[in-house]
Design a protein around this nucleic acid. Structure first.
Length: 300
DNA sequence: AGGCAGGCTTTTA
DNA sequence: TAAAAGCCTGCC
């Protein structure tokens, strides 16, 4: 099926944004997404753009060039997404996951170009990023695993964990994929099997989180309705979950768009570009969206 | 109380 | 070899 939209949506930038770890570009314009027990192929035909030719570097240069040229024209483009699912699956699974009810162009429009040149630049450069509505459990484990590691290493561990404890399924192209494991499936792993997932010292954190969810001590669905402070306190009380991971969980797992994870990169941004302090009040309740633009832009 | 040093598994560049 | 979407413990 095809989707036409005028709001921000850039598959590559979302795939590289560091909020999700199971989006993989399989060729120049097709992304393979594993989520909610399913696998989706999403293609974004390069319409109205220069044909992509030559080396990969040249292709990227073309893309950036076109993309920044587009920012000069206020007229809204219509973007087409080609998905290998039907309307029902799109409405039930993918549209909510992609947060299609939110208007990201409007959120970007709140940035004042003159008073905040850095954020404006970051948002233009990373235009197309959305904050996905991820399942809380997958987000929690993903960001526990993320601590003190770079993105390729995180993706590797999540894939290994899924292969160990997830369900093996076949996608609509006949390729195999593994669903993200349930807490029960994680608990069923032996210490050795869990160690084989290359989580390092974080494997204890993952096991304890699974125990808390299975026992009912931790109710992730209930956290969705909790206020920011309650959710933050509940999460940071967990073993291996500090302020950074809890903030990521709020933003990506519970969709509290005002949560503002501060990692090593954002710390540098705040020090370099906001020595007088960052205007959190001004950008509420979308601080997390702006953080995502700045993180992705600065990390390059 | 709140801040800081050191350690932690493994991968990536 | 240092750094990586950090956190825990122990110490002051």
């Amino acid at each position: 099926m095809k989707i036409r939209l005028t709001d921000d949506f850039d598959v590559r930038r979302i795939a590289q944004s560091g909020q999700c770890f199971r989006w993989n570009m399989i060729d120049d314009d097709t992304c393979r997404i594993v989520y909610a027990g399913r696998c989706l192929y999403m293609r974004t035909p390069a319409q109205g753009k220069l044909p992509l030719r030559g080396t990969q570097a040249a292709q990227r240069a073309d893309f950036d060039c076109v993309s920044s040229a587009r920012t000069e024209t206020p007229a809204q483009d219509t973007l087409t997404l080609e998905l290998d699912c039907d309307e029902q699956e799109y409405a039930e699974i993918w549209a909510p996951y992609f947060d299609m009810d939110e208007n990201y162009a409007a959120i970007r429009a709140r940035i004042d170009r003159d008073s905040d040149a850095f954020l404006y630049e970051a948002s233009e450069h990373q235009k197309g990023i959305r904050i996905l509505r991820q399942e809380p459990w997958e987000a929690l484990i993903s960001f526990i695993i993320s601590q003190n590691r770079n993105i390729p290493a995180i993706k590797n561990s999540i894939e290994l964990l899924s292969r160990r404890a997830g369900e093996r399924r076949t996608d609509r192209r006949g390729e195999e994929y593994y669903t993200f494991p349930t807490p029960e499936a994680v608990l069923a792993l032996s210490d050795e099997e869990l160690k084989d997932c290359r989580l390092g010292y974080r494997d204890v954190y993952v096991r304890r989180a699974a125990e808390q969810v299975v026992s009912g001590e931790l109710d992730l669905e209930a956290l969705k309705n909790a206020d920011d402070e309650t959710a933050m306190n509940t999460l940071t009380a967990m073993y291996g979950v500090g302020k950074k991971v809890a903030s990521c969980m709020l933003l990506y797992g519970l969709h509290h768009l005002n949560a503002f994870p501060i990692d090593v990169w954002v710390k540098r941004i705040l020090a370099d570009y906001y020595p007088e302090g960052y205007p959190f009040e001004k950008y509420a309740p979308y601080n997390g969206v702006y953080q995502q633009y700045m993180f992705a832009y600065y990390r390059g």
